[in-house]
Design a protein around this nucleic acid. Structure first.
Lengths: 125, 125
DNA sequence: CTCTATGCAAAAACTTTGCAGGGAT
DNA sequence: ATCCCTGCAAAGTTTTTGCATAGAG
């Protein structure tokens, strides 16, 4: 079973955690999305209890498989871990944009992620 | 009344909003703190209903008098508006540190504030 | 078979809202 | 006198936890 996505399957098995339908489903959606998603975004596409969702998210974070951050709509957003980048959150339209090629370093600090709040180009009057 | 803090008083009157005990109290505490505070931090020093607190915070934000951001303890933190700077939030000890002298610009974006999550120097093993 | 994962329901934590009374201008 | 502000209580939102059952290895 779960033959339909070898890549996701491998992602899970490599961490020595159990391969379940719920886990495959969450990771598949995050992979396809190519942008951060919240529980509300994800639940549209899968039937899974929210407790299961959040418990799996917690496990994925612990295993360093995903990143999360909070937007200004009070929800947490999740994405598969990939090359480091910042997130821009527009306070007008609430859109989230990935900002690559941003270079932030602080001596002696280890940086996990960067969130920038402001007004995006589309929302400038 | 409220003669004890002319600066805060002026801050409020300049915005043409009513000068109330609650408003003066909140702004005085934020001014003295010199670092971002949450409702929980602030309520220790003043007796004020949380509804009043949050309604005034909403008004202050609308009037562009304060900044706010969310930490990873799920609470919102508030500070008086001053020169732009970033906030570093340590995921280990939950401390919040103001980072000045950081230069982040994105062409066509208007930046309100920047939050950096990671591990602070004290929490590196 | 054993141990982890899941679903359901209830709780938790922080913030917001409705409403009636109080206070600033 | 008018309108905005305040306190209280109740509701709202997102995330977490307890417990019994189901499922992966």
């Amino acid at each position: 079973m779960y033959e339909h996505n070898t890549k996701i399957k491998k992602l899970i098995k490599d961490k020595n955690i159990k391969l379940t339908t719920a886990r495959v489903a969450i990771l598949e959606i995050l992979e396809k999305a190519k942008k951060p998603l919240s529980y509300e975004d994800i639940k549209v596409d899968i039937s899974m209890d929210k407790a299961t969702f959040y418990r799996n998210i917690a496990k994925f974070e612990k295993e360093d498989m995903i990143n999360s951050f909070e937007s200004n709509d009070k929800k947490r957003y999740f994405e598969l871990k990939k090359e480091p980048h910042a997130h821009f959150i527009c306070m007008e339209c609430n859109s989230i944009q990935c900002i690559k090629n941003i270079d932030i370093t602080l001596p002696n600090y280890e940086i996990y992620n960067v969130t920038i709040n402001g007004k995006c180009p589309d929302c400038q009057i």
